[in-house]
């Protein structure tokens, strides 16, 4: 049964109005100027003024906010440091997740469903709460320092909360299931007799892993990296609650521009630039997903 036109039209229109159209509004807003008025920007289109008003409206839009972003090192640094933090945390997440995903794929069949559910379970519990849980652990007088001091590993409490280290821990912790699951899905489908064949032909366990297992798990690794890197780039909650004043991340900058400075045009320009930077990875991710779902058919 092919879906009827109506079944196509309803979700299509919903996404067009509530997902696509808003981007054009953001784009337009990024070309406006900040003004002391309600709503706080100018120009505002007044259709009663006729064609003349529309022309004036167009003339008033400009790229001033973008030159502002390019000139102010604050924004440039925020973009750069978001990229670095997202990239490093993606790599750490990958190196933590891979052994776990591999172990899940090797685990006895009868435990597997339970183990996979235990990986997913934390993902269902609130993101905010999981980030909050780390505050009590990482604080100067927190549990990690209490533990390390009592064991005698350190003599002075470490300052971890409100540093970039805490942000890395928060991102790795929050996004770990996103990395484990696609890698596990790729490894689970793997034909293990290939490894046996490689070993029979004289390859060591390690080289069999690098030459056979790892390349076969690559689609999962790539999907996992996208699923961690892209949201981490625009992350707000983690740098806000765990990071310090020195932690510059673009999601937080956008939030501050919008809610604290009430500068909607600059916040919109930040959003547009972030989106442009992320379009390449997002399109690549979408292509990969589409290929996978077509392969599934």
């Amino acid at each position: 049964m092919k879906p009827s036109r109506l079944v196509i039209a309803i979700p299509y229109l919903w996404l067009a109005v509530l997902f696509l159209a808003p981007f054009f509004i953001v784009l337009k807003m990024s070309l406006s100027d900040l003004a002391v008025s309600i709503p706080p920007y100018t120009p505002q289109l007044d259709l009663s003024g006729g064609w003349q008003a529309v022309k004036e409206y167009w003339a008033a839009l400009d790229f001033e906010n973008y030159t502002w972003l390019a000139d102010d090192p604050l924004y440039l640094n925020a973009f750069k440091s978001s990229f670095v933090i997202a990239a490093i945390s993606t790599l750490i997440t990958l190196s933590v997740a891979y052994p776990i995903a591999y172990a899940l794929a090797c685990s006895p069949q009868r435990w597997r469903a339970l183990l996979v559910m235990l990986v997913i379970l934390p993902f269902w519990t609130s993101f905010l709460i999981r980030v909050y849980a780390w505050i009590g652990i990482l604080k100067t007088e927190g549990l990690l320092n209490q533990f390390l001091l009592s064991v005698g590993v350190i003599a002075e409490p470490l300052t971890i909360l409100n540093t970039n280290t805490a942000v890395y821990i928060g991102i790795v912790y929050s996004y770990l299931p996103f990395m484990i699951l696609p890698i596990y899905a790729a490894l689970e489908k793997m034909d293990w007799s290939l490894i046996e064949a490689a070993e029979d032909l004289g390859s060591s366990r390690l080289s069999a892993f690098w030459l056979v297992t790892f390349p076969l798990s690559l689609p999962g690794v790539i999907a996992g990296c996208f699923l961690v890197f892209i949201p981490a780039m625009g992350e707000f909650v983690i740098p806000d609650l765990l990071g310090g004043s020195g932690t510059l991340m673009i999601g937080k900058t956008l939030w501050v521009e919008f809610f604290s400075n009430r500068d909607w045009p600059v916040a919109s320009a930040v959003a547009v630039v972030l989106l442009v930077l992320l379009i390449v990875p997002i399109v690549l991710f979408q292509r990969q997903q589409q290929k996978l779902s077509e392969a599934g058919q």
């Binding site: 996404l15 949201p231 909607w264």
Partner: peptide, 30 residues
């Protein structure tokens, strides 16, 4: 319009929340 539709379905999965939030807010105001 299939390509556009597929894009609109997968993009929000990875869109940073601050962008989705900001764009929806500006829509509601508009």
């Amino acid at each position: 319009g299939r390509t556009l539709f597929t894009g609109m379905v997968y993009a929000p999965l990875v869109m940073p929340e601050v962008i989705t939030g900001l764009s929806l807010l500006l829509l509601f105001i508009a």
